[in-house]
Design a binder for these strands. Structure first.
Lengths: 166, 166
DNA sequence: AGGGTCTACTACGTCATGTAGTTGTCTTGT
DNA sequence: ACAAGACAACTACATGACGTAGTAGACCCT
């Protein structure tokens, strides 16, 4: 998981990630290029090799992991959507100094919908519920070793491989 | 403020924005290409025209605004750092559905330092102080017309223009 | 043996960015 | 009055990321 720098997904890359995230429940071992092509390539009129190239690049960039399944590769997302998003958020805020961050957050919240504010409060409360050490205590003392592990996800079912593959 | 799509600043563009943000207090009318070059171009061995090209492109992309000052242009940041950051945060979260967003936020908070959590709580409290309508009320009813306007900023002083310019 | 499947390479177009030269005006110091 | 310097407007070129795809060659099943 090299978590590369100038990280930003292209449209096709994003579509691939979406698919991998959608199928990671039903296909823990990942899906093949063929499956990805059938699911998002055909409808866009893309060549099989296009998806192969993209997946290969994504694997080399560390966006996805892959393991052999016979001659073929099975791809899985290297990070969950939540992790990737969280990482992006941290990266965005990481560029700012403390006071700027607070100011930016205020701007952010001010532009948020009531629903979003609610979601944030809920997430904050949830964190405190799971990790009491993360609750308000005004002093920045924490060993930073406790962490939450989520549970939910969604599922779907792409068709199995063509001829062989395994 | 066209707020373009695939928005991501390059290294030089970011440096320019940083400078504009740093000097917007002391130079409300903006600074010239010359000044930008002197401040961040010389130390990098960049040609004057490089900064001119970059600033011109940034103006066309809506990242900066400019107004004539004699023959020259005076550039100012189109958005504050806070606004830009806030926008990026919204963009990042906007790609997710409600439940995914909540999950992503939990991940985000779980990876945040106590200081960051504190900053977030403070910003949240600040928002509620300034906009009671943004406080918890569980139902999503708001006319979305009240907003906060911040105040602080920093200042610095780049040297004035060369020959003429005005 | 042939058709279908896969990977590994190679390749090309496009767009964003960084970087800079050329041209042609103005302006100002001398 | 002029030359030197300042500026903008163009044009240009390199690089890297992405989208897109073709070819070659190995494999496998019928």
């Amino acid at each position: 998981m090299p978590t590369n720098p100038r990280n930003r997904l292209g449209d096709l890359e994003r579509a691939v990630m979406e698919l991998l995230w959608t199928t990671d429940r039903s296909h823990p071992d990942g899906i093949t290029v063929r499956e990805v092509h059938d699911r998002i390539g055909l409808e866009r009129g893309l060549a099989y090799t296009t998806l192969m190239t993209v997946l290969d690049r994504m694997a080399k960039k560390g966006l996805v992991n892959r393991q052999r399944d016979g001659r073929a590769w099975r791809y899985t997302a290297a990070s969950s959507r939540e992790e990737l998003t969280s990482e992006t958020l941290h990266h965005t805020l990481g560029e700012l100094a403390g006071d700027e961050r607070r100011s930016a957050l205020l701007h952010f919240l001010d532009e948020s919908t009531p629903q979003e504010l609610e979601e944030l409060r809920a997430a904050l409360a949830e964190l405190e519920r799971r990790r009491p050490d993360a609750a308000v205590d005004s002093d920045g003392s924490s060993d930073g070793s406790s962490h939450v592990s989520s549970g939910e996800s969604s599922g779907d079912t792409p068709s199995p491989v063509r001829h062989r593959v395994s």
